[in-house]
Write a protein that binds this DNA or RNA. Sequence first.
DNA 1: TTGTAAGCGTTATCAT
DNA 2: ATGATAACGCTTACAA
Lengths: 333, 333
Amino acid sequence: MSPESPAVTIYAVADHARVSIATVSRVLQGSTLVAESTRQRVLDAVRELDYLPSGAARSLAERRHHTLGLVLPELGGPYYAELLAGFETRAAELRQGVMLVIAGNEDHGDAVHSLATRVDGIAFLGTDVERVTRSAKKVVLIAGDARPDVDVISTENHHGAQLLTEHLFAHGLRRLLFVGDPGAAHDVRERHEGFVAAHLDRGLQAREPVLAPFRESDGRRVAERIIDGDLEADALVCGNDELALAIMARLMRAGIEVPVDIAVVGWDDVMTARYVRPGLTTVRQPVRAVGALAAERLFHLVSGTAKDAEQHVLPTEVVIRGSCGCPELATDP
Amino acid sequence: MSPESPAVTIYAVADHARVSIATVSRVLQGSTLVAESTRQRVLDAVRELDYLPSGAARSLAERRHHTLGLVLPELGGPYYAELLAGFETRAAELRQGVMLVIAGNEDHGDAVHSLATRVDGIAFLGTDVERVTRSAKKVVLIAGDARPDVDVISTENHHGAQLLTEHLFAHGLRRLLFVGDPGAAHDVRERHEGFVAAHLDRGLQAREPVLAPFRESDGRRVAERIIDGDLEADALVCGNDELALAIMARLMRAGIEVPVDIAVVGWDDVMTARYVRPGLTTVRQPVRAVGALAAERLFHLVSGTAKDAEQHVLPTEVVIRGSCGCPELATDP
DNA sequence: TTGTAAGCGTTATCAT
DNA sequence: ATGATAACGCTTACAA
């Protein structure tokens, strides 16, 4: 209540209930070795004093933070939010707290280090393994390169991209272009590899990818290169939906019809993908499940329940709408 | 490294550097009262041993967690993610950690309680004040009812809704309907009040709101009532964009033209709002800034830097696109 | 400039 | 069934 009232500790509760702090602790831990009458007395004292245990003291004594860390590169778009939601939900079920750090911010090195001092383990998304592995903490990698010695949770990129590319071929399209930077993230590289593999299957040679970051403004720029005739293609396989959507919008504003003049497909199945016309053909990932699994594995790791490092690859699903050239199904939003 | 190696503590570092733990602590705190040579020796030891301080021990000694809590009702849609991003970014700048709990999950009472044991203060979104105020922790409320005794950060709802409604009147529209549940959240109620106020200004009487939660499926249902002739209106003022978008899509699928047959406006300015045709007229909130300010205020509260509780109301901005009946500007995506 | 030692608020091991 | 008391790993006077 008052700004500077000294915090109520376990000692105050013990005094108030006329027991020792050991007994208070027992009651709070739910130990059965306490007489019902004293238990009630303690509980009453807790309530009357508004006692809130010190998590720090607890963690120190227990040598466990009961908290899992999650490091994300950013929080733009629905992808990261979904992942986080899955992570926190599973963590809560396991009664673990969640600490978040967004690594994009300037001093993230610091932030991650200080995170490591307050959690039992950390799930990383989009960071290189080395910097992380020696942190002396339990670690799981999300959407990262498979390494036999660390836990990795990822989704099927290669195969999905291959299917998607093949689908475009089936539409009779031949001059495909991959838009996105395979060097930027491991999952993008895998998508590009699937794109290349689909070409190989047909005895075709994939062209060089159009390097572009995943921002809407970058998509606009790519679109303008196409409008200017600087880039030629009859289908665009984009690294994610934001890119695809931005390109599509800019193209159509210039009178270039999708999918008639050019087909466009994306990746992620964001909300907008099913609201635009034509609907965006894309690939859906089980993002929530990835987050949940990351929390789950991390928990096992810190609990010592996990035998060895595991690699999990969750399945993806191609979502066909109109932007690839298929007839639009009117069932969507 | 090895699964059960005892954690490296400050004692190990002290031994290794042949100093006392006090000196190690001083070096780590950046105290200037340490000879450069010993400082180096300590730093070397830290590196060689991969020493990671125990946040728990630190917090216990310092009586500070250096961590801020954030309680969100859910994480769907861009609103919460943006808010969180703002919160974590500002917190990181202030060198505070961030713990997140999503209150929607079953046992959130528990989760919030245990959160309170590990943070210095908590920012709540969409929870009733009473349950929160007695937590003996510092608290700020986001998008909540203004109360003189607690910090509240919110955005301008009443005025924005009034402007938006008036804009619809200016289009010659008269039979407006508010879609959303004013009882569900404080900010929705304020929007509805603005809607009503705009009617009063014109000597009109607002009709009863169409109660609907903020899900796409609910929007679809509302649209179907309009299609069936069960609901009559020439303009819909929706509680948020998801609702507006879902309604608009369902309406147009049934051949009802927006904005010709009926105008639709939303709230939030989500990404999809600028990608659909017609573009959705809506209201933009400085969500990131709200999150940042919440972190900021919370920090001042726990640092004792804050004098009194403050109420902040951040300005909103009406974003005109095509769905209200205005000519579409082609500049958007 | 450095060391000694007293907390910080719990949990858990002994006794009783 | 309960109470002393020793950790837990730091920070921070106070001494030297």
